[in-house]
Design a protein around this nucleic acid. Structure first.
Lengths: 230, 230, 230, 230
DNA sequence: TATGAATGAGGATTCATTCAT
DNA sequence: AATGAATGAATCCTCATTCAT
């Protein structure tokens, strides 16, 4: 697929490169298939045979790319987590006030939640992971939590956000966001971006300082352009 | 045990009654044990042997009360759902304006989410139920959804709630609430009632009409008396 | 039920008598129900619960009359065997020539095969009985075999039956008869008696000596009055 | 085993072919072992573990070849049924008069009944099969029945067989034949072929037309050369 | 005599995983 | 790198049987 590179047969390097790439592509294909299956049927009901079947390979072939079923589960989770963390670092490095940062976090996280790997972050059962992986998972969750709480704290400090209970506020926001991973189905009437934009305002409306009071009211009232449900 | 009633020995009633009661109590004990185990380890990792062990009985004894493991899972869900529906009917029959109703719903639902059977509503995997039970489950979820949406609609109609996208608003609120079922651990620093009270205000703050603007601000700012998390 | 006997309460005897009778009646009712169920579904698929249900009693109640499920199975077989042996003794004591005896045996056995207890003799699996009961069963089968072989031998001796291989002849006759236990369904177009009469002639036609040649030919041609199947 | 073909090592065909063959051979080995065990102990008493043990494999390995225990049972039955049907088609296509056809059927069927797969046709319990397989089974039984009845009808039409009740005649013949599946034990004093030859004459003696009267008498009298049982 | 409840033993089945090819 | 075959571990469930009442 990506083999438009010259790749003279004499050089062992390029073939090796392309081989490694092919390997990585296959690996990711497995993850994409697996995450879908796991989301559809649940981790335990989904069998590796089904994963393999959907990929037109055989079950043992999966073991060329992953050590175990649990490994696959974990790597799915890692995929989602990496995306979240990438966005977080990106957003945190861009400096805006607390409210702006929070809204960007919400927007980014909402969009990710509407993806398979994103949903896997909240729909997989931590208890299905090995002890060490559970630790990693929890650390990841904590980092996300911290990002949201930090933004809120910063907003309170810079007066872009009203004083409030940081922890509960973060819980409420993250709850609404995580839930997207449960109800969002592609092909629904709202695109991930629309949901993300709407939630960025909606979930911060009650704690945003007056500054944007008027606009926020408007936005809160009609956040979604497309066919308001009344 | 419950025989503090007169209980004339001639009456065949009490033995029978008490037997039936004993049976119902045992049945419920199974459910309480099972729901805990399922929440701790997940439905599939939890074995009926463990359930039985915790109850000091043997595995087949469970089959006196339930037809199958799936049956137990479903009945756990039913327990939670019944509690929710009871509260919903109660709240809907008490007439208040839309906002008041919505807040009562939030408060009630939040408290239930902090219980085992409540959490089971959102933490069990629908795919683990039989086809017919899945249908029942979905119908239940829809009824809850409808209750929240109706309250919002009514609030918009009676001007206690700002005009807003009903569906997304309901999703956001229910998302924050459902998430309680995932993070709440008994013994934490907030009691279910405190969470319930806080969420009742917090999750409706942005859509509540100005009337209670001032108080809501206060409440939104310091909703929880107990040790604000900074 | 059958207590139309005087049965003054003062006399412990009659109540006892009637009690014993009631007991025997119940015992037999169990057997009648069980044999039907075993024939319908097979011994292993049929559960004692089903037997009990059909009798409107509970499973453990069965243990008042029988020691085990296998015991029930065996007693069903005994019921059939007793009927056969009764008829055999009866027939053997009535003296006729070999052919006449054989025909009476065929007639009697065919009729029994069309009954539940009779069918149980050939449709139950000997391997489902305990070792000692298997022995008893086999002994019973041998007695039946012997009766038929003896009749044939006697017939050969008294010239009512052609010379033939006794063993194979008996096998063929008993095979055709035992098969009745497999195909006969009450309510079919032939009554047990009709089948019995027909088989008495049919299965002996080829070995019967000429004496009744003419009549036998007639009978062999149209043995069954009722609706010949062409 | 069958690799006397040139088999150039370069050909990918043979490995594949031989693998498929090996698979089929193993599959059949399972059936042969299973049918024996089922006949010895009965379907329910026989466990898959025993089947596997006799084959020196483990229980789950059986599931590579069969979907379930019932599937094995059914396939045993199919093996027997196929043999019968093959012979039936063969015999029916060879044209002889009704009597000749009938005798060939008897001979063929008797021989099959003396084999394991043949006996399984009459010793397995139809109630142990799934609903759809029961239907198939019954259809098979009907085809056999029809073959025998057709031969008889044809014989009556072409005057090789006396006029008689077709249905009962077929029942009697098939009964005697099916019974072979119950009593025949390899190593007995009669070989399957001897039984088959004998029954071919014996079971048709009474309905065969006079033509072969004299010879039939002889044959009926001394059908078996080998050590008459008296 | 009858019952509800409980038990123990056992079997089919599934599935992740491994191994020889 | 991939496959067919095999395995071992584990779990649900059934059912005859027993026991206290």
């Amino acid at each position: 697929m990506d083999t438009r590179t010259p790749a003279p047969e004499s050089s062992p390097w390029l073939p090796f490169e392309s081989r490694r790439r092919a390997r990585d592509e296959k690996r990711e294909a497995v993850l994409r298939t697996a995450v879908q299956l796991f989301l559809e049927q649940g981790y335990h009901r989904a069998t590796l045979n089904e994963v393999a079947d959907r990929l037109n390979i055989t079950k043992p072939a999966l073991y060329n790319y992953f050590r175990s079923k649990e490994d696959i589960l974990f790597e799915c989770w890692v995929m989602g987590q990496e995306r979240v963390e990438d966005r977080i670092t990106e957003i945190e490095s861009a400096d805006g006030n607390g409210l702006a940062t929070l809204r960007m976090l919400v927007r980014a996280y909402a969009a990710i939640m509407a993806s398979d790997f994103g949903a896997s972050l909240v729909r997989f059962n931590v208890a299905d992971l090995s002890e060490p992986n559970q630790k990693i998972t929890l650390a990841g969750k904590r980092r996300i939590d911290r990002a949201f709480r930090n933004a809120i704290k910063q907003g309170i400090a810079d007066h872009s956000i009203k004083s409030c209970d940081v922890k509960l506020t973060a819980f409420a926001i993250l709850g609404a966001l995580n839930w997207v991973g449960h109800w969002y189905k592609p092909g629904g009437e709202l695109s991930p971006d629309q949901i993300a934009d709407d939630f960025a305002i909606r979930l911060t409306a009650d704690i945003a300082k007056q500054l944007d009071k008027k606009p926020s009211e408007k936005k809160a009232a009609k956040p979604v352009r497309k066919r308001p449900s009344r």
